[in-house]
Write a protein that binds this DNA or RNA. Structure first.
Lengths: 119, 119
DNA sequence: CCTACATATCAACGTATGTTGAAACGTAGA
DNA sequence: TCTACGTTTCAACATACGTTGATATGTAGG
């Protein structure tokens, strides 16, 4: 992930409704959520949500698939992972003590205990 | 770090000049850089840089100290670390496979080889 | 084919954001 | 104290951004 992609990702996440969308999609898992459900969850109009979804899609943070009448959106875990790596690489440039606590906190939590856990 | 702080941090990093500032400050280490040097590095006017530095400072991503006539800015590693943790926690909610590659990439690189990563 | 439903697109508006130039502030040295 | 230097603040401007309402596309069922 280069600086330009990271810039787009940060800009995408730097907006209240879009951050809420990503958090909701990450939480719900790969099954994703329909646009209508997302609009209700985030609390904005459907057309407005479409605008933000396009932005997030361009940033590579979400993916979409059609299912009947609905369009299901889900988190693009690869893109999010790339962003984490970008942040860590930048942080680690010369100063590893930034990432160490993050990794430690991660390993202390329930999600990365040895082998990969599941939802 | 709550959602509102993360939002401010993402918004701060979602701007070309501000991202460049943070990267420059992280790279140079705790010694930091004077505002004038930063302005030259990033390629913007001093008054404009001040505007962005204030934004980054509010977001808790940089710190400043006066040294003679100059004001030295440096990366706020704690704030950056908090942001990494926020991203990882959100990512790990239900889907640990997001953070695993990031951690793996980190440990494969030169900045966390050995004891620093594990508590 | 026609209707109903779900989502996306478009134009228009108000507001926030980034940039610029002029001026003020704070610090150090003569 | 005066001047020079580095940085910040302020007002003004242009532009980008997010929101809204109306309209279009696409899909399933009768």
């Amino acid at each position: 992930m280069d600086e330009r992609q990271a810039l787009a990702a940060f800009a995408a996440l730097g907006q209240e409704h879009r951050l809420r969308v990503v958090r909701a999609l990450v939480t719900v898992g790969p099954d994703g959520l329909a646009a209508g459900v997302l609009a209700e969850t985030v609390g904005i109009a459907g057309n407005n949500l479409s605008f933000h979804l396009k932005e997030l899609s361009h940033a590579g943070l979400i993916a979409s698939r059609r299912e009947g009448k609905s369009v299901i959106y889900s988190a693009a875990y690869a893109g999010l992972s790339d962003l984490v790596q970008f942040l860590m690489r930048d942080c680690c440039q010369g100063r590893p003590e930034v990432c160490a606590p993050a990794v430690a906190a991660l390993e202390a939590s329930d999600c990365n205990t040895g082998e990969t856990a599941h939802a």
